[in-house]
């Protein structure tokens, strides 16, 4: 059966018009291609349909916010808060991302092929975030669940005030935040990482080098 594809030219649309068109067309097509995104903010906001979407260029802030079932691929970079509060689905970013990618997600998968900015996975509850490059300051701040996998280096104060969840890292860790501790991965972790990363076309052969950041305490007590 032929795939039903719909193409939207965003060059003369506002974000509101773009999102209204996407939400209207999503139930009718298998795939939507967004041409000329020109780093537009708030693209594909609040979409709950199951559909493939390809963004032919870079997107701005909050791409895919509250996505539930869509599989979104961005053939460029994204700005701040990519995949914010996603509940499911997938967001694949071929380039780099700004601060707060995966902020507050409840589920789903976010994959960024290159570097990202600060506060990756801030207050995330569930779901998976994979960063192909480096992740900056306070990665996993206030993390409450889920997993972050970073194939490059981590910046200052990783896992600041982390409560639950896990941050896997292959590279260096500049410093740890409050309530975060760095430990070795287990054989079970390595098996899980291998399965996850192969699924997303990251073919590594050094799983032994991974380490993980987890909470020191599930009920941390701050101050005296």
């Amino acid at each position: 059966m032929n795939e039903k594809v719909y193409e939207i030219d965003l060059s003369k649309m506002t974000p509101r018009e773009a999102n209204e068109t996407i939400i209207k067309m999503a139930p009718k097509y298998d795939k939507i291609i967004l041409k000329n995104p020109h780093a537009m903010h708030y693209l594909i906001a609040g979409l709950v349909e199951e559909v493939d979407i390809e963004v032919d260029g870079s997107a701005g802030y909050f791409i895919g916010t509250m996505n539930d079932k869509a599989s979104i691929k961005v053939n460029g970079n994204v700005g701040w808060f990519g995949g914010d509060n996603m509940t499911g689905g997938k967001l694949l970013i071929e380039g780099s991302a700004g601060d707060g990618v995966g902020q507050g997600i409840y589920g789903g998968e976010i994959i960024v092929k290159k570097d990202v900015g600060a506060r990756t996975g801030e207050i995330m509850k569930k779901g998976t975030i994979i960063i192909g490059g480096n992740s900056g300051f306070m990665t996993g701040i206030f993390m409450m669940g889920g997993r972050i996998v970073v194939l490059g280096d981590l910046g200052r104060d990783v896992g600041e005030s982390i409560i639950r969840g896990v941050i896997y890292v292959l590279g260096e860790v500049e410093s740890l935040g409050k309530n975060a501790k760095l430990v070795d991965v287990t054989d079970e972790d390595k098996k899980e990482l291998k399965s996850l990363l192969r699924k997303h076309d990251f073919n590594l052969n050094n799983y032994d080098k991974f380490r993980k950041i987890i909470p020191k305490s599930k009920r941390p007590f701050y101050g005296k």
Partner: peptide
């Protein structure tokens, strides 16, 4: 402030984030 500005004058395949501090 944003990539949308840079792309007016150059290719933005490789955009770098300015890190905190």
């Amino acid at each position: 402030s944003e990539e949308v500005s840079l792309r007016e004058v150059m290719d933005t395949t490789n955009v770098e984030q300015i890190s905190p501090g």
